[in-house]
Design a protein around this nucleic acid. Structure first.
Length: 257
DNA sequence: ATGGCTCGTGTAACGAGA
């Protein structure tokens, strides 16, 4: 079973790339973030024609998440019951015996911004939701854009990013407190090339100079981590015309599925 | 040092992203 996550930065713009990527990467589950589409505009028919079932939760202009899967998607929960919110950032569902959480963590904008406080509060409530899910599901995978680089090795230039969002102590601590639930960062279960990133700024030749950050993650519960045989970042779509600034992250799970 | 691009909105800049 292969599961993947990709912040597409507008599914309206990126749908052809998503479909193209799935042709060469026929993963079993694909979590999308930043679809930026209201539900009435979601390209459900096109995705189903490509052989995927899909659930989605969107809003106008911002945010929006979706889960695509080859097998039935059941027990879907939108958002976080512990954090009533108009922003559409979380979808949780069961697929092939695994509990899949698709998350778009708030960006935070700047350390002195209200949005940063919102991000930390959001993450605290997200931990509650994941803790609750873990009580019911031993096979739990939390995929998405976390907008947090876990460590300095996940940042192209840690000095330049000092004191900024995505790397602050409070954000990293919030991520650690998710891992403390018994989840593993799938990417770090394996040896990886140095300077492996999942996002590069559109500006200043960010991708060409590999000035990136690793902020898109797949967290796995013990039962799934034990079955995980690989976790990779696919940089290829970042080289395509009109790319998303993020690129897919894929985990391979042995066993069931 | 700063901003450097790409979205959506709406049809001109501007907010937001990270």
């Amino acid at each position: 079973m292969k599961i993947a996550t990709w912040n597409v930065n507008s599914l309206k713009v990126r749908l052809p790339q998503v479909l193209q990527w799935l042709q060469t990467n026929p993963v079993d589950v694909l979590c999308l973030q930043e679809t930026k589409l209201t539900n009435d505009k979601f390209p459900q028919a096109e995705i189903e024609a490509a052989g995927y079932q899909v659930v989605f939760s969107g809003q106008k202009t911002y945010n929006g998440v979706a889960i695509l899967a080859k097998t039935p998607i059941t027990d879907v929960v939108c958002n976080n019951p512990h954090f009533p919110d108009e922003q559409q950032r979380i979808l949780t569902a069961t697929i092939d015996g695994a509990r899949i959480v698709c998350a778009y963590v708030p960006n935070g904008q700047a350390l002195d911004s209200d949005k940063y406080q919102y991000k930390l509060a959001w993450l605290g409530a997200f931990r509650q939701w994941l803790a609750e899910q873990q009580q019911h599901y031993s096979r739990l995978a939390v995929l998405g854009d976390y907008n947090i680089a876990p460590a300095d090795e996940d940042v192209h230039d840690p000095k330049a990013w000092e004191g900024q969002i995505l790397v602050s102590d409070a954000e990293r601590q919030a991520l650690r407190s998710l891992l403390d639930l018994g989840l593993s960062d799938a990417f770090r279960l394996f040896e990886q090339a140095p300077k492996s990133f999942s996002w590069w700024d559109y500006r200043a030749l960010g991708f060409r100079l590999n000035k990136g950050m690793r902020i898109d993650h797949i967290l796995l519960s013990k039962d799934l981590a034990n079955q995980c045989s690989a976790c990779e970042i696919d940089r290829l779509p970042r080289k395509w015309e009109q790319p998303s600034d993020h690129t897919p992250v894929i985990a391979t799970l042995a066993g069931q599925g």
